[in-house]
Amino acid sequence: MERAGRKYFLFVTVFIVFIVYGCGSSSGKEGMPQAPPPQELPVVTVGIAPATTYQEFSASLEGIKDIEIRPQVEGYLDRIFIDEGAHVKQGQVLFHINDRPYHAQLENAKASLAAARADMVNAQINVTRLTPLVDNNVISDVQLKTAKASYDEAKARVAQAQALVNNAEINLGYTSVKAPVQGYVGRIPLKIGSLVGVSTTEPLTVLSEIREIYAYFSLSENDFLQFKNQYPGTTVEEKIKQMPPVELVLADGSTYPQKGKVQVVSGQFNNSMGAISFRASFLNQDGLLRSGNTGKIRIPRTVTTAVLIPQEATFELQDKVFVFVVGDSNKVASVPIVVTGSSGNYYLVDKGVKAGDKIVYSGTDRLQDGAVIQPQLISMDSLLKKKPL
């Protein structure tokens, strides 16, 4: 019985091993891992369309007149009639300098003038008295000539005294510092009680007339050469007249509602910076812009046949922009492109791809060169309708 049991156990064990081995052998190739199917990715055909691109240049803003208000006489500042940021009219009094010394100078000058006039009257009387005596040969004409010389001297002293009076009146008037133009008051560094004069380093304030604002910006030598080639005309002035209106992008990223016009250009390059300066003017009736603001000038450029690529289809690597181009057998290859500008959500491309090429629209982060995909074609027209230029 014991031997029979051992034989039965051995038989069952061999049978189980045979069954397991047979099942494993019978599965064969069906048990091997299968290759995943190609990725389904959206693909768009590169197209051509008219587009407007923009060049941006950093700009600083200044009023058409930024005038330093400086004292023209010396004295203590005893009144300030305005506050920083206030709008003032032309001729409005801004500051007052203590005028007591200048009142005294004026009174002294007037007294000197009165004395000079009295001397002139006496000299005239003397000439009048001696004239008939000379005519009747009672006295020699030497005395009359002397009297006339004294009169001329007295007359000159009157003119000199009058000039001193005029000068004293002018200096007295300078104690009231007035606005030469209308505009906005800048910072007021000095306070009441400060001693001011023509030698004071800081101005009392800066008055900005900002009904119109100038935006100063610079073009590099390369940008300037492109500018000269882009617009018709034989001179720079003629080319500037052909430039379209420009936009001003403010520091917060918003666009100023009024468009401006480029007016003048500097006569020569700044050798230290390798740039040449331009100026654009913007109307500023509401006073939204102030001197000292910064922003960016946007110059539009229209391209009639631009090669467009959605920005979503690109990726950057080592400061270069790439796309995945779909080739034969739906294999993809990364290709560098040369971007000449942007318009809306699209890049304008000069080199790398051409109209009719198919590129992967999205999912480029999951691709590598030589990968095979299952394209899902998207129309460029449909993209332009969803995201226009």
Rank of each mutant, 00 (worst) to 15 (best):
Y184N: 11
S194E: 05
Q143I: 11
K145C: 14
N122K: 14
I97E: 02
N136W: 09
Y102K: 00
S150L: 14
L130D: 02
E209H: 14
Q105M: 12
G197H: 04
R129C: 07
T200Y: 05
K155C: 07
I210A: 12
D119P: 11
A123F: 04
L144R: 09
R211M: 15
N136D: 15
T201M: 13
D119L: 13
I192H: 06
T201Q: 13
G183C: 06
R187E: 14
V185W: 02
L133Y: 08
D99W: 04
A111T: 09
V134D: 00
D152T: 14
N136T: 14
A147V: 07
V134K: 05
N126F: 01
E153D: 12
V181P: 00
V206R: 07
E169K: 00
P101R: 02
L113H: 00
G183P: 07
K145W: 12
R187W: 12
V121K: 11
A123H: 04
Q143R: 15
V206E: 08
N126C: 09
R157Y: 07
Q143H: 15
I210Y: 07
S208P: 06
T128P: 07
V177N: 04
V185E: 00
A163T: 06
Q182N: 15
L106V: 05
D152W: 12
I192D: 04
H96N: 07
S199W: 07
Y174R: 05
S176A: 09
Q124R: 12
